[in-house]
Amino acid sequence: MAITMKEIEHLAKLSRLALSNEEKERLTGEMQSILAFADKLSSLETEADPTMFAADGKNVFRKDEVKPSLSPSEILQNAPQADMECFVVPKTVE
């Protein structure tokens, strides 16, 4: 299938990537060739069930028992910005 610049822009928005015009153009071309290569799958007729899980397991559960959490300092140790024992982000519009 053909992929348009507009679709690239839509995908970039969904992926939260800001692309320069040059990047958009390059990616349009690259995605085009990757998808041309992936289009081979569409020619394959199959009624097989999709494989959704890599292992055969089922009903893998945990008991409802409390275990210690990390300390707030460990939780926040990598935060780019923290204040009042919280992560800080630009004001969200309410």
Binding site: S42, L44, T46, A48
Partner: peptide
Amino acid sequence: KAQKTRTL
């Protein structure tokens, strides 16, 4: 489709 091919 890829998941189906995965099965195959």
